[in-house]
């Protein structure tokens, strides 16, 4: 029987440790925001990984940055090829070191913020943009499909604040047919949180505020 879950509840480093210490031969599939990643274990070693467009260690390092996503571990499935020769514990250490060292990288700088945000139930993705729509950080691979629209929404919110002789709204919520979006300012950037449309605003907003530190 396959082990299934979400990376929000069980992080990838823990999943790797678990499979390696159990000396498993298995395939781990991760689906995050419509993109698939694969990690293969052979007798307790990580032997192959794919996360488009990367293969091998680089794919593992990128997957370690995922905050959420469905995963499935299927026992007994062998790797089609071998692309990783590093032992699992060194691989994990290298990956975690890279994550720590990446704090200066704008794309990684907000990892902790996103980690906190993804503890909130119903959150599908989060994006940080400059006022002109440039994506600074995103949990989603396709953040650039709506970045200018999100920036336009934030711009209009500011203008509404001007009309009412107020600052930019503390929060702005927008419900579309498929999802609910919450906009706020974070370190002068626009933070956009996308929730599923079942999320009750009054319920999630206090948790989001807490995660953001407001």
């Amino acid at each position: 029987m396959a082990l299934v879950g979400n990376l929000k509840d069980l992080k990838l480093p823990s999943l790797i440790q678990l499979n390696c210490m159990e000396r498993n031969t298995a395939k781990l599939t991760i689906e995050a925001d419509g993109q698939y990643g694969f990690l293969y274990f052979d007798k307790g070693q990580v032997v192959h990984a794919e996360y488009d467009p990367d293969i091998g260690e680089k794919a593992v390092f990128r997957m370690l940055n995922l905050y959420s996503g469905q995963f499935k571990v299927e026992s007994g499935i062998r790797a089609p090829v071998k692309s990783i020769n590093t032992s699992w514990n060194n691989l994990l250490l290298d990956g975690l070191n890279q994550m720590d060292g990446a704090e200066d990288n704008p794309e990684q700088k907000f990892t902790h913020l996103f980690e906190k945000l993804f503890t909130v139930k119903g959150l599908k993705s989060a994006h940080l943009l400059t006022p002109d729509g440039k994506v600074i950080a995103s949990s989603s691979q396709n953040a650039e499909s709506h970045n200018y629209l999100h920036a336009l929404v934030s711009f209009q919110s500011s203008k509404i604040g001007d009309i009412l002789a107020r600052f930019h709204p503390e929060f702005m919520s927008l419900a579309t047919t498929g999802e609910r979006l919450i906009f706020t300012k974070y370190n002068k950037l626009d933070l956009i949180m996308v929730l599923d449309n079942k999320s009750k605003l009054d319920v999630v907003l206090p948790f989001l505020k807490q995660a953001i530190g407001q």
């Binding site: 709506h146 702005m172 419900a175």
Partner: peptide
């Protein structure tokens, strides 16, 4: 209108200040 261009329909918008 922005969402309309992206073929999405907005049902409600809310702005919160103190």
């Amino acid at each position: 209108a922005g969402y309309h261009i992206k073929s999405q329909k907005v049902n409600e918008v809310e702005f919160y200040w103190q």
